[in-house]
Each structure stands twice: as structure tokens, then as C-alpha cells.
Simulated assay, not measured.
Amino acid sequence: MNEMIAFCGLDCEKCAAYIATANNDDSLRVKTAQEWSEMYNAPINPEDINCDGCRGDGAKLIYCEKYCEIRKCAIKKNLITCGKCKEMDSCQKVGAIIEHNSEAMKNLKAMFMAYTQT
């Protein structure tokens, strides 16, 4: 199973914060902080760009660690990903991710299949 698939199905290995952390790339941290600050209309500093992945141990982006309702829900339900949740098809939270990122649904289905075969 791919440990870098987030609870919502996004691939953490494709996230700029994860890439910057994995490669200790300060220039990518600066670039990402600038882009995300503009995108989210919120102050984000380069030192905030540290993440070892949604489901793994280690650093998390503050949003992911403290505010992500999908992550909170999956942890509360003791799920590997939302793909194992009986309510996934009707869940508006994960539905919003899937609606804007078709790869997330593919990842959730793959994780579900991998989990059921072990």
C-alpha cells in the first residue's frame, strides 16, 4: 500500500510541501509559500512548508494537522483512507476533493483494493 496517499486520496508525493521537505529544498519552500499565500489569501511563511505526508509520522502542514476535517474524520474512524469509509459516496468533504481531482478517487479505490487483499 502506498503510504503517501492521503486520507482523501491526494498523493502527498506530488505536493510541493512534501517535495520541499523530502529534498530539504529551501527555494521550493519560498516559492510554495509565495504561491499558497496568494492562492489562499493568507500569510504562509517558507518555514511553514514542512510535511512528511498526511498519514505518516513527522511534520505536517498546520492546516493538515489541525484543521483538515477529512483527516480528523478518518483518524476518528480509525480508517487507512476515506476509501474504507461506508459513507464516502455521500461525504461532501471528500467529495469536494474528488470533484476537483479525479486521481484522488483512483487512489482511494486502489488503496481499498490493496487493503482488502491483505
Score class of each variant (00 low, 15 high):
M1L: 15
M1I: 14
M1D: 07
N2P: 15
E3Q: 12
I5C: 01
A6H: 08
A6S: 15
A6L: 10
F7T: 00
C8H: 08
G9Q: 06
L10F: 09
L10W: 03
D11R: 10
D11K: 13
C12F: 10
E13W: 01
E13P: 00
A16C: 05
A17P: 05
Y18W: 13
Y18P: 01
I19H: 01
A20I: 02
A20L: 00
A20S: 06
A20V: 01
A22D: 04
N23M: 07
D25K: 03
S27E: 03
S27I: 01
L28T: 00
L28Q: 01
L28V: 01
L28N: 03
L28E: 01
R29A: 04
R29M: 03
V30Q: 09
V30E: 14
V30T: 09
K31V: 01
K31S: 02
T32G: 02
T32M: 01
A33D: 04
Q34A: 12
Q34D: 10
E35M: 08
E35N: 11
W36Y: 13
S37V: 05
E38C: 04
E38V: 12
M39T: 11
M39V: 08
M39Y: 14
N41H: 15
A42S: 12
P43I: 09
N45P: 01
N45F: 13
P46T: 07
E47Y: 09
D48H: 11
I49F: 03
D52N: 14
G53S: 11
G53P: 08
G53H: 08
G53Y: 05
C54E: 05
C54G: 07
G56W: 03
G56T: 15
G58T: 11
A59R: 09
K60Q: 13
I62T: 15
C64P: 07
E65L: 09
K66G: 03
Y67S: 14
Y67E: 15
C68I: 08
E69C: 02
E69W: 00
E69H: 10
E69P: 06
I70H: 05
I70Q: 05
R71A: 11
R71V: 11
R71C: 05
A74M: 09
I75S: 06
K76F: 09
K76V: 04
K77R: 13
K77N: 13
N78F: 06
L79Q: 06
L79G: 04
I80F: 14
I80T: 15
T81Y: 06
C82F: 07
C82P: 08
G83E: 05
K84L: 12
K84H: 10
K84D: 09
K86T: 10
K86Q: 12
E87G: 02
C91V: 00
Q92S: 07
K93P: 03
A96N: 11
A96Q: 11
E99G: 01
H100P: 00
A104C: 10
M105K: 13
M105D: 08
K106Q: 14
K106T: 12
N107L: 07
L108Y: 08
K109V: 14
A110Y: 10
M111R: 02
F112N: 10
F112S: 11
M113Q: 14
Y115R: 07
Y115Q: 11
T116F: 07
Q117H: 14
Q117R: 12
Q117A: 15
